[in-house]
């Protein structure tokens, strides 16, 4: 990963935000159209990986709001909590709870969607955790 090209760096600088936005788009619309937390997460991870290839893993880490291992923990917690919420209504674990009114842009929001967000975060976290560490592991 030592070889970096100027061209790639420039391209990534533009591509990465696009890819990230696309990934969020995939996540949000996943419930109704092709997409979802998995694909969204994978695309986002790909964006960061691309960045890591263009710049360096270290630079990519600096861009991340949370370290990958924390992302995993947060993602798992969100997924778990989205299921636990139903318990407070006296329903079985993971029973869907939906807001009455759809939100702008996002659409209908319910616990399954929150669950999908958890999935999204875990996927990003894991992919980055694996690939970044592997890329840094130069021996």
């Amino acid at each position: 990963m030592k070889a970096r090209s100027m061209l790639l760096q420039v391209a990534v600088a533009y591509l990465m935000p696009l890819l990230l936005i696309f990934s969020i788009f995939l996540l949000i619309r996943g419930h109704n159209e092709v997409g979802g937390g998995f694909v969204g997460g994978l695309v986002a991870a790909a964006a960061f990986i691309l960045h890591a290839i263009a710049e360096s893993p270290k630079a990519t880490r600096a861009h991340l709001p949370l370290s990958p291992d924390k992302l995993i923990a947060v993602g798992l917690s969100i997924a778990l909590l989205s299921g636990v919420l139903a318990l407070f209504q006296g329903n079985p674990f993971m029973t869907g709870i939906w807001l009455k009114q759809p939100l702008p842009v996002i659409g209908k929001v319910g616990t399954p969607f929150i669950f999908d967000v958890g999935v999204y975060l875990v996927v990003i976290g894991v992919c980055l955790h694996i690939l970044l560490n592997l890329a840094e592991d130069e021996r």
Binding site: D69, K70, I72, A73, L76, S77, L80, G83, V84, L87, P92, F93
Partner: peptide, 22 residues
């Protein structure tokens, strides 16, 4: 009946705790 999920859920919760206090 709601308790039957508890082993899995609790184990996951402890697992997440483990990740948080890495």
């Amino acid at each position: 009946n709601a308790w039957s999920i508890a082993p899995i859920g609790l184990a996951l919760a402890w697992g997440i705790m483990g990740l948080i206090f890495w």
